[in-house]
């Protein structure tokens, strides 16, 4: 496994598959990093893949009847159940293959949902599917709010952020709670592979997709997807904001193989949080005090993650 040679990357620009599985013509916003994440992920999974997608931005921009963005088999059922639908697809593939009713080859099942569809309304169906140990990969495309319905807060919205249901005001700082640690919840299911990723780091992302596909059981990848529309950022800076999220420690890149944590990007020394917050309309109301609060929390969380990663390394 690549853990023996952690610095060796399987993917480089010239070996990324040229075949497109989410084709041009979709209606994603200008500068959308989420559709970019989908495009990359599918290149990693390849042709023999079935997608179960939750209601949300990616579903809406890709599938208005009678057109489709997908060259892979794709199913959408509802908002909160893409993991349950994936369970059904995976179970059906297994039994139909056993009975010789479909070709005898591996077909990977991938469930894709946004942060709301994963961390809020879809958490139960995801937890059930992970616990039942279906062989599938779940991808959470986290743009940190309900962007499809018009930027309402979710449990993935970061502290202090302005959304249409967490507006800052005389009695409000904006989002008043801290972002739910969803990857940790996935890890708590004792599944073989959990990772965070960001399309700003495409090779890291593709490597994680490759590992997620290989494990014999469920895998979970949490992807930060910069949303210029909801974050109030310039549309040409999505990749940069993704990098800043990683380099400031806001969104560390790591993976958890069989419970062992490993940072896949060493962000130290962390860049100050102000570099990330600056220029994002959703944070522009923040006072120096609240920025200091956020900085403190980010640093603490980073140290905790680093400690986990270090102790895992020692255990190996």
């Amino acid at each position: 496994m690549t853990t023996l040679l952690p610095n060796v990357r399987t993917f480089a620009a010239n070996v990324i598959p040229k075949e497109e599985f989410a084709v041009p013509g979709h209606r994603a916003c200008t500068g959308c990093a989420e559709i970019l994440a989908v495009r990359l992920a599918l290149k990693g999974f390849g042709r023999d893949t079935i997608i179960s997608m939750a209601t949300g931005c990616m579903e809406i921009v890709s599938s208005p009847l009678p057109t489709t963005d997908w060259t892979l088999p794709w199913i959408h059922v509802a908002f909160e159940n893409c993991a349950a639908v994936a369970s059904g697809v995976e179970s059906a593939l297994k039994i139909l293959r056993k009975k010789g009713k479909i070709p005898d080859k591996d077909v990977h099942v991938v469930a894709i949902a946004g942060d709301g569809g994963t961390m809020d309304i879809g958490l139960q169906s995801l937890s059930g599917a992970l616990e039942r140990y279906h062989k599938f990969t779940y991808i959470c495309l986290d743009n940190e709010a309900y962007m499809n319905t018009g930027i309402q807060r979710s449990s993935g919205t970061p502290f202090g952020a302005m959304t249409t249901t967490s507006p800052p005001g005389k009695n409000s700082i904006g989002q008043s709670t801290w972002k739910k640690d969803m990857p940790k919840i996935a890890v708590a299911h004792n599944i073989p592979y959990v990772a965070t990723a960001c399309p700003s780091y495409p090779f890291d992302f593709l490597e994680k997709i490759r590992k997620a596909k290989m494990v014999d059981g469920p895998s979970y990848i949490h992807v930060l997807s910069v949303c210029p529309t909801g974050w109030r950022t310039p549309t040409d800076l999505s990749i940069r904001y993704g990098r800043l999220a990683v380099q400031t420690g806001v969104f560390p890149l790591y993976e958890v193989e069989d419970g062992k944590y490993r940072l896949t990007y060493n962000a130290e020394p962390l860049r100050p949080i102000t570099e990330y917050l600056k220029g994002q309309g959703r944070f522009r109301h923040l006072t120096p005090d609240s920025i200091a609060t956020i900085q403190k929390r980010i640093t603490t969380d980073w140290e905790a993650l680093k400690a986990l990663s270090d102790s895992s390394a020692k255990a190996i």
């Binding site: 199913i75 059922v77 159940n81 349950a84 994936a86 179970s91 059906a92 169906s125 059930g128 616990e131």
Partner: peptide
């Protein structure tokens, strides 16, 4: 499954798979 909602959702996925 962990709920009836998922029970029918899984049926939808399985039936769609054939």
């Amino acid at each position: 499954v962990e709920s009836e909602h998922s029970a029918l959702s899984a049926c939808v996925g399985a039936a769609a798979t054939g």
